[in-house]
Nucleic acid binder design. Sequence first.
DNA 1: GTTTGACCTTCCTGTTGCTGGAAGGTCCAT
DNA 2: ATGGACCTTCCAGCAACAGGAAGGTCAAAC
Lengths: 132, 132
Amino acid sequence: MNIGQAAAASGLPTKTIRYYEEIGLVPPAARRDSGFRDYGERDIHLLRFVARARSLGFTVEECRQLLALWQDQDRAAGDVKRLTRERIALIDDKIAQLQALRATLAHLERTCHGGNRPDCPILEGLAGGAVS
Amino acid sequence: MNIGQAAAASGLPTKTIRYYEEIGLVPPAARRDSGFRDYGERDIHLLRFVARARSLGFTVEECRQLLALWQDQDRAAGDVKRLTRERIALIDDKIAQLQALRATLAHLERTCHGGNRPDCPILEGLAGGAVS
DNA sequence: GTTTGACCTTCCTGTTGCTGGAAGGTCCAT
DNA sequence: ATGGACCTTCCAGCAACAGGAAGGTCAAAC
């Protein structure tokens, strides 16, 4: 399987697959005589795992840990659970921040008449006043 | 006013202030004979504006636009309102994504017993199954 | 058999928004 | 005059890739 097919099968762009290999997140792929990378089922499986974890917001470093746990026969599910909990907490923080942000912006937006007159509460809010 | 005091007054790190000057987001500061940058009230006002806009999630490029609108006497409040609306829409998207993410992770987390046995629904979810 | 075009390789640069550090100059108080 | 806090510039690097150049390879069509 060429890298292009591996990309289609895993959902990762070829660039990203090469990058993950370069930084050692995934082991180097086998090579054909031509120098082309050659992927098998196991490789695809691994790539899909990484793709999924990344799409769930785990950083590359966390993916490294998850992969190690995944491939470790004596892995402790507790470690995985802990990583997941930490990620959930981070996400909650981020959501809260974004919601506060949104409230402030929505408030400014509501008070702006939107016409062509030069006064604009949004800019005034940014310039001087308390913004939240 | 030295850059350190400008930093304290504006809430931006000195590094960031120099960086904003370098990329032309703010005009070059005046210099003393010694070469030190010298900030006045107007400069601080400008820096605070940028700091606030950044903290509200506007990108540096958007800050550039906002500054131009702010300093433009003939500015149209409508433009500002539009920028703000766009930013709110982006934030809403992001919040929705994060909430979906959180739901998936929370589901995995709930189904994980967390013990030391090698089976772990989180890893299994990442590995093969449908994750959401 | 050759030619086309899709695919692959490596390498280098750029992205966003800073942050850290090194090497050196300045300011001010003691 | 000396110490320490401040300032200057420049260079490197962070995440996590994306884009593109220059060149090699593969498979099928002609």
